[in-house]
């Protein structure tokens, strides 16, 4: 664990200076900008009637996270854990240190997770404050955003570990990752029976409360949601399994750089 911590500190420092982190920090501010725009329209009384901050948060901001930003953060940070080292030919520096291979993967995963979670939460809490400023004194509002944050964090870690695993053995991991995110994860949700449970998105959406009586929601489940505790256990379990598999693959696989 000490070695993984050393690797995490090293890669966290490297990641702060990486272009990818800067681009995603900018992308992470999109919900904040959208919230600001909404607020301005509201202040100018040009927002549609009944289109409240609450509604905007649940139907625009949250779907943006669940269906786009979480996936993109996980895909680009996750696949880069190993692929970046292989393609950048810096793997030799890592493999010739007194650092076990699983510790190196775990450390870089932790560093990537740190950056991705920061991007996610800064935007989420920023949007919340802008859209629900009137309820800033209400503990239940904070509880609600904390719950959303926890769900998004858990889903991010789950996807991140999956793409970390994918990056250890698939060369065009981003391409296949995109297929997974916008193909499999969306299509499978419309399948009847237990098939929908083969998508990570099913468990994520099971944890997001469906507003009662609301006829329209981007995040509504097509079929039956799983119980919340079961969904949490599945997401946490998958994270552990994907990470362990990534460590195992990385410790057994040799990476040949092309000359």
């Amino acid at each position: 664990m000490r070695a993984a911590w050393r690797a995490a500190v090293f890669f966290f420092g490297l990641g702060r200076r990486a272009k990818r982190t800067k681009v995603f920090f900018a992308l992470g501010l999109v919900p904040v900008l959208l919230s600001l725009l909404f607020r301005m329209r509201h202040a100018l009384s040009i927002a549609p009637r009944g289109f409240s901050g609450e509604f905007f948060y649940s139907n625009v901001i949250l779907p943006f996270y669940v269906q786009f930003l979480v996936l993109m953060l996980a895909l680009f940070f996750g696949t880069s854990v190993v692929l970046e080292e292989v393609e950048g030919r810096t793997l030799a520096y890592l493999l010739t240190r007194p650092l076990s291979r699983p510790a190196a993967v775990l450390g870089k995963f932790a560093a990537s997770a740190g950056h991705a979670l920061a991007v996610l939460n800064i935007g989420l809490f920023g949007s919340f404050l802008i859209l629900k400023i009137e309820r800033a004194g209400d503990p239940s509002a904070w509880l609600s955003v904390a719950r959303d944050s926890a769900v998004l964090d858990l889903s991010l870690l789950c996807y991140l570990s999956l793409f970390t695993l994918m990056g250890t053995f698939v060369k065009r991991a981003i391409f296949f990752g995109l297929l997974f995110c916008f193909g499999w994860e969306n299509v499978i949700a419309f399948f009847p029976g237990l098939t929908q449970k083969l998508a990570i998105a099913h468990y994520v959406k099971s944890l997001i409360p469906q507003p009662p009586g609301q006829t329209f929601s981007f995040l509504r489940l097509m079929l039956e949601p799983s119980p919340p505790l079961f969904a949490v256990l599945i997401l946490a379990g998958l994270t552990v399994v994907f990470l362990a598999a990534a460590g195992l693959v990385f410790s057994q696989k040799e990476y040949v750089t092309e000359n």
Partner: peptide, 20 residues
Amino acid sequence: PALFRRIGYCPEHDSFYEDT
């Protein structure tokens, strides 16, 4: 990995973490 406390390796490729 423990052996790498005793080994130093200079790779052939001109590759670095460029932003450091």
